[in-house]
């Protein structure tokens, strides 16, 4: 390609990290966040509302320090994270294995697809009241809700992924002497993998909000509980600490864990050509 050749010929000097940091997006982005914080802090005396109604940025910072000093926040974050990882892990495991199992025969996949669609549509939030009736308030409700919310997008997408594999590929491998097992390993699983990953990403996103909600209803620790309990005792600053921690935690999970994972798998399999082209 001529563009590649040109790039090699000119050999553009890559700016060093600090340089990029100062001139680039990172700095502007940090500035944006800072502006929001300053605007928030300045607006508090201007609107003159009671602290429980509209706490200042500094009050939230003090609540944050207090929650850390008392050791509450680290425990809550660890609890939430533990529940999240357990629920998402189990949900992924069950979703993928069930999806592959159902897809082994086209008939079962076809027969079960409407049921999967329907159960996927009953959002986990709607199951929580029934779970509470069955098992009372507690960890079980949260874990089952998380498993549910991760399982169905994966299951749904696995079924769709395998259904859309062209029959020609399967026929080709069969006529080359491939066994049923080889068809699964060499054609169906790789073909469905991008869909499975997509389902996983969707499920992981819903699961995080689902975690916060189920902790509001059925837990006595965790970030959801912190967010919920704070307002019940007019400690609104604590609620906001919980919300910010939740946001930061989700961004960490998403950027450090999920996005690289997706890049490593989906993009390699070439389904996100569009994004590649537009870069």
């Amino acid at each position: 390609m001529s563009a590649d050749a040109a790039a090699v010929a000119i050999k553009v000097r890559r700016p060093w990290f600090g340089e990029r940091l100062l001139s680039g997006r990172v700095l502007k982005g940090a500035l944006g966040l800072l502006l929001v914080l300053v605007a928030w802090q300045v607006s508090v005396p201007l609107v003159g509302l009671p602290e429980y109604f509209y706490p200042s940025a500094l009050a939230v910072w003090r609540a944050f320090l207090e929650l850390i000093r008392k050791g509450i926040l680290p425990v809550y974050v660890a609890d939430s994270l533990g529940r999240y990882v357990t629920g998402v892990g189990l949900g992924t495991l069950i979703g993928v294995s069930l999806g592959l199992l159902i897809s082994l025969s086209r008939t079962t996949a076809r027969v079960l697809a409407p049921l999967v669609n329907f159960l996927y549509a009953i959002v986990e939030v709607a199951w929580i009241p029934l779970f509470v009736i069955w098992w009372g308030y507690g960890l079980k409700v949260i874990l089952v809700a998380l498993i549910y919310v991760v399982m169905f997008p994966i299951l749904y997408n696995t079924l769709v992924g395998i259904r859309t594999v062209p029959q020609v590929y399967i026929n080709a491998l069969r006529s080359l002497g491939g066994s049923r097992l080889q068809v699964i390993r060499e054609v169906l699983v790789p073909a469905a993998l991008p869909n499975i990953i997509t389902g996983f990403r969707v499920g992981a996103g819903f699961a995080f909000r689902g975690l916060i909600f189920s902790e509001m209803i059925a837990a006595k620790t965790g970030l959801g509980y912190l967010i919920f309990e704070g307002t019940a005792h007019h400690q609104t600053a604590r609620t906001i600490v919980g919300m910010i921690c939740m946001g930061v935690l989700w961004l960490l999970i998403d950027n450090v864990y999920l996005k690289p994972f997706e890049r490593a798998t989906v993009e390699r399999w070439g389904t996100v050509v569009a994004a590649e082209e537009r870069r």
Binding site: R25, K28, G29, A30, L31, G32, L33, L35, V36, Y52, F53, R209, I212, F213, M216, G224, I227, F228, G230, T231, A232, T236, T239, I240, G242, M243, I244, M246, G247, W250, L251, D254
Partner: peptide, 29 residues
Amino acid sequence: RNVSDLLRPVLTFFQSIAGIAWVPLAVIW
């Protein structure tokens, strides 16, 4: 470009907490 560079992290952040987490605060307000 400048405005969007400035605001993108803010939007990303608000998008990541949008939804259910606002319910308790909304009840206060």
